[in-house]
């Protein structure tokens, strides 16, 4: 199954945002993810994202970052996709800008699932045509459809 179909919903996909700060990015991802399960609190998710990013950048190359949280509050994985209108400097270790963010939350105990999600996301994101198709989307529905195609 397509990893984006598994992780995303149209409600958790947001295109063409003018954001340009880490806080705004994490705020968006937290709000989107919190809609997935009513046990999730967006303020806590926001803090979790900030803490995780302090440990090391979640930038994975080609303008893509995958901020993520391991949580004991969920028993399945959920994701949120955010596309920026313009890229921003997200990682200090590269000159490349980041404009696509796939944030996700994964059950803490299931490390194997976590690694499989990383592998599936990497397979998709390493494809240049796929990345460019996501960048061409001008609204959230189009972005969701292209990601889950």
């Amino acid at each position: 199954m397509n990893i984006f179909k598994k992780l995303l919903s149209i409600d958790r996909t947001l295109a063409n945002q003018p954001d340009n700060s880490h806080n705004k990015i994490f705020r968006h991802l937290s709000m989107l993810l919190a809609t997935a399960d009513n046990k999730l609190d967006h303020e806590i998710l926001f803090e979790n994202f900030i803490e995780r990013e302090k440990l090391g950048s979640t930038y994975i190359g080609h303008g893509i970052a995958i901020p993520h949280i391991r949580s004991s509050q969920v028993n399945k994985a959920y994701g949120a996709l955010l596309q920026l209108e313009h890229g921003m400097k997200f990682s200090s270790s590269t000159e490349e800008n980041t404009d696509l963010f796939l944030g996700f939350i994964v059950p803490k105990i299931d490390n194997e699932q976590h690694l499989k999600i990383l592998a599936n996301l990497s397979e998709k994101f390493s494809n240049n045509n796929f990345r460019e198709s996501l960048r061409s989307a001008k609204d959230s529905l189009k972005l969701y459809n292209l990601a889950t195609k």
Binding site: S122, E123, S126
Partner: peptide, 12 residues
């Protein structure tokens, strides 16, 4: 030399 490449291995 690619983060995505390495993660594709899903090496536990």
């Amino acid at each position: 030399k690619s983060i995505m490449g390495i993660m594709m291995l899903a090496a536990k």
